[in-house]
Design a protein around this nucleic acid. Structure first.
Lengths: 150, 150
DNA sequence: ATGATATTGAAAATTATTTTATAAATGGTG
DNA sequence: CACCATTTATAAAATAATTTTCAATATCAT
């Protein structure tokens, strides 16, 4: 409900490097599939069995705030995380949720097109492609020839 | 967690026109500010005081499935609804959540650029601009000259 | 009017995420 | 090294948006 940003100009938090934070970062950097917090939790648990999910969430937030990782807020129910902090777009499978990078260069000029045409001050944009991964495409075309309900 | 789409080819539901559904549609058509389910609920309640929030959610889903309205899944915690079902982009204020239409034409050719460059079958794309509405811009520039914490 | 089934209201369930409280760990300083 | 102000971890509870359940109607093609 209240998702308004914190606008205080308070002094920056000084973060400490903890074993938990280090392992979380290492694990995210090993994952190439844009994992969710829960998937990262499961991976980290193998190294630190007593870690709590809350710690994972908190550290993912801190790490993305620090620019160590990128938080992907896709039009999906779950947020995903990416070790690659460079600007790039994504493509998401509507059926299974798989997320790949979209091989297309970021288009900053999109924002320029709005200049003067809106009363808003533009800060950025978000572009996400929706599609079907090869596996789901295949399953769906099978279903089409052979519907499950006769 | 399980947000995979229903892929059954079962026979289409036959929807009935209820007073509730009709009032919900009428109210959304009156609103120009991309209202959330809760805002629609409040508006509808003035006409039908005994309606439940669940009914509003259920009908908004049905109405958007039927193409009577458009469901906007922005990178916001709440979904919004739009009486205008034509393809268009939006710009959202990061601070207060206000959503305006983005005065820029839909770019279908964006999807073509991915053709052959990804293993996905492209179904669509989503483009959302992030910014500050005039009111929030003003408040922020005041804060800059006069920070709340000395 | 009748009957099959879609729909409602109210409440409970779900899901992802955030917050709280208490205890423990960290790292700069004397 | 010991002290100490914080930051952080854990576990559990809280939150918030949305969905589901279920028993009681309402709808509409026949």
């Amino acid at each position: 409900m209240d998702e308004h940003r914190d606008i205080t100009l308070a002094k920056k938090h000084i973060y400490r490097m903890t074993p938990q934070r280090k392992v979380i970062l290492e694990e995210v950097r090993k994952m190439n599939n844009h994992p969710s917090a829960d998937e990262i939790y499961e991976a980290v648990r193998k190294k630190l069995p007593r870690i709590s999910l809350g710690t994972v969430y908190r550290n993912l937030e801190i790490l993305s705030e620090q620019g160590e990782i990128q938080k992907l807020e896709l039009t999906d129910s779950v947020n995903r995380y990416d070790w690659d902090t460079r600007k790039h777009y994504h493509i998401r499978c509507v059926r299974c949720g798989r997320v790949d990078n979209a091989p297309i260069a970021p288009m900053q000029q999109l924002e320029n097109e709005l200049y003067g045409a809106t009363v808003f001050t533009i800060l950025g944009h978000r572009l996400e492609f929706i599609g079907l991964c090869p596996e789901c495409s295949k399953k769906l075309s099978c279903l089409k020839n052979n519907p499950p309900d006769k």
